[in-house]
Design a binder for these strands. Sequence first.
DNA 1: CGACGTGTTGAGTGGAATCAACTCGCGTGG
DNA 2: CCACGCGAGTTGATTCCACTCAACACGTCG
Lengths: 253, 253
Amino acid sequence: MSCCFGVNGGEVKSLSPEEAFRACSGGVCALLGDATTVPRKLQLRRGDRLDVGDKQKLWTVHDGVVALCSSLADGRRQIACLATASNLLCAPQDRDGLGLWVEALAPSWICELDISSRAQSIAEDAALGAELLRIVQDQSNCIYTHLVTLGRLDGMERVCLFLADMAWRIGEHRVDGYHVRLPLARDDIADYLGLNAETVSRIFSRVKKSRLADFRSPTEYVVRDIEALQRRSPIAAPHSPSAAVNDNLGEAV
Amino acid sequence: MSCCFGVNGGEVKSLSPEEAFRACSGGVCALLGDATTVPRKLQLRRGDRLDVGDKQKLWTVHDGVVALCSSLADGRRQIACLATASNLLCAPQDRDGLGLWVEALAPSWICELDISSRAQSIAEDAALGAELLRIVQDQSNCIYTHLVTLGRLDGMERVCLFLADMAWRIGEHRVDGYHVRLPLARDDIADYLGLNAETVSRIFSRVKKSRLADFRSPTEYVVRDIEALQRRSPIAAPHSPSAAVNDNLGEAV
DNA sequence: CGACGTGTTGAGTGGAATCAACTCGCGTGG
DNA sequence: CCACGCGAGTTGATTCCACTCAACACGTCG
């Protein structure tokens, strides 16, 4: 079996099936992978896209940031879901008028599993089905929360929620607060939050001025009081400890 | 087993277990219901709410309009998902800071199935798990599309999408076009579309003026050219024939 | 009849988008 | 070494869309 593949022109590290399978032999991959369904381990550069197509696929993010994206005919883009290290991602089915793909927003390592070929197993193996159900539900929860964010929060609330969430997810917790290296560009943040890049930048400035977060550089910020940041948004960050019941952290890998 | 229940003060028709089971013996209810898991058939009035709680529940809408709602502490409400006759509804798990409930937006008949007690069966019965997976995925698709709507469509686009969708779902197709009796109030439409009631009303007026739909009364409109209405939105209506692949119409009941 | 709920319309405001100018860091090449 | 171009981010001026608040229209029901 050949294991070389190109991803929209991106350079993708290729592994032998054995390496790939060994590389990701925990969690879902262990449960779903077998001799015929080998997880593809992919190295993605920022901007690399993976087609969703009509196959049922599953992605495990090992490093970086990967997003579930759609775009309209005129180019408007909306990011529905962000996945960082150890998160799982699964895609809804493509719909008319809605392009749908998975995109790396930063250099990333991910593991792709095409479970279409396992349809038979899923129909027969209850444990497999239950695990898949849990994964789809987790993602559905995540999208649900984000829907409310887009429908009812204003710019400041969305940005504070985002900054707090990123601090929980990828921040380094030191004595003086959470240190975060933002791996996303302003455009990407804007497309995730349903805003535009200039507005995001402006709100970042307001956040800095109000001392809710301290931007050391365009891609680095420090949050001294994450509770205060949280309180600026009426919704709890999906990955905060208090909301951790439903996330899929720690069960992926 | 007692089968009398009150729903937030609403008058709820009570049926004997036998009646209830017989009333909804097709589709999911047949698959999931058994002697111990009897579907509750409920009659709801506009405004009646069903708690989601931490149980895994499933609702089949037989008549009316039922919505999946959340609200923020300050009262802002967002409707994530609308279900009309023969649609299925399942709820994500409740999350911090996000109230979550199922609400009838019009007088409705629904069937509620608490499948928590069947957890064991789900873990063992692959067919059951696969069916549940399909249901959750369908709903996830629906929420996903709506997320993009809220994130990237302007008021006019959202309203035209909504009007076209309702025409497909509950409109009566006559020679002169689709005749629709809107079962939702302006407030509810607004909370679904992430707008406010006055804005919805204003846009309805614009739609009428531009002849995309003809409002005969506040709750009745006729769409002569539904394709033209569709084209005003960059997203296809989830329940239009062209997007029907993913809906759950016809498989419920 | 008047009260009430629901929907419509208008005036004014505010928040985010658009368009444009500018800064900054970085890599390239003269 | 510096000039230059380039991409990313910031900031300002202006516009536009949707929200807020308020008044009014309409149908229903006591």
